[in-house]
Design a protein around this nucleic acid. Sequence first.
DNA 1: CTCGCTGA
DNA 2: TCAGCGAGG
Length: 342
Amino acid sequence: MGLNLKPLVISNPIRISDLVGKVVAVDAFNVIYQFLATIRGPTGDLLTDTHGEPTSHLSGLFYRNINLLCDGVKMVYIFDGEPHELKAKEINRRKKAKEEASEKYNLAIEEGRMDDAKKFSQGTSILTSKMIEESKYLLSLLGIPYINAISEGEATAALLSKKDLAYSCVSQDYDSILFGAKRLIRNLTISGKRKIPNKNAYIDIVPEIIEYDQVLKINNITHEQLVDIGILIGTDFNPNGFNGIGPKNALKLIQKYKKLEDIEKIKDELSNTPYKEIREIFLNPNVANIEDLNIQFKDLEKEKILKYLCDEKSFSMERVANYLRRLEKNVIKKSESLDKWF
DNA sequence: CTCGCTGA
DNA sequence: TCAGCGAGG
């Protein structure tokens, strides 16, 4: 799951009101997986419609996006395309991890350990192509544009930020910074309090922003060197990184030796790592031409949303209508306060 | 994810 | 008034 850059970055809290009118490029898979992990019933089951089809992804997308739209944030969702072939190992590892989580989940259900069941269920989420299509459909009804990336979604999100078509990327993972994104916002689509695992305590989750320039500056490194650090720690394209090297160590090594080829003690391991190819993935990512990306923000289609979510997906008419009304009021209020200036 | 209820 | 919990789908 991404790479652990946390110890090497500075993150500053950001208020959602700082994002009014700004475009953010959202890592769609990352966000939807989060909804699938968190939006579950007391024993870890997903929300479903009357046919038993999962609806947790739609619930999360609907409520979260309406709130962000109310706050005046403009989202563009970026969906992953074909993964790079070097990602096969990582994809396989995730698949195995899910199978293991499913076994633990089933056993916990069988033995009536419902707390455990809920815990293990979070690791079992599978994002089907049907769920992806449903998510895209709901986004289009909400008037929120989305882009189908050629390959890694985070590469395309980073491109939007580099070209100032977006102010920032949005993801929990740090990969977009390696792709050269100017900014990354974390914790935008999760909110409030989170329980600390196995403890009876809660922490406040607040949105935070990470600046690319600042990351390079405080560590006194270049973009190329940041990518090399990522390769040492381990990326999706070389999942485990190098033996015994964590973020702090990786930084020290690159600060001292400047590049992977000059680090004597990793020579053998390096010869077994396609590091040149991985560098290329991050430094010359496979993305569309910026002119070919058609991003249009539209009005939401109220009737169609009600029809889709309530008639087809078993959402409560009252709740959905309430939410849509709240957004409408907000839009009116915003335009009124704007009118006062003229 | 979010709402709505509940008990301090 | 508000954190915490259960339900929604």
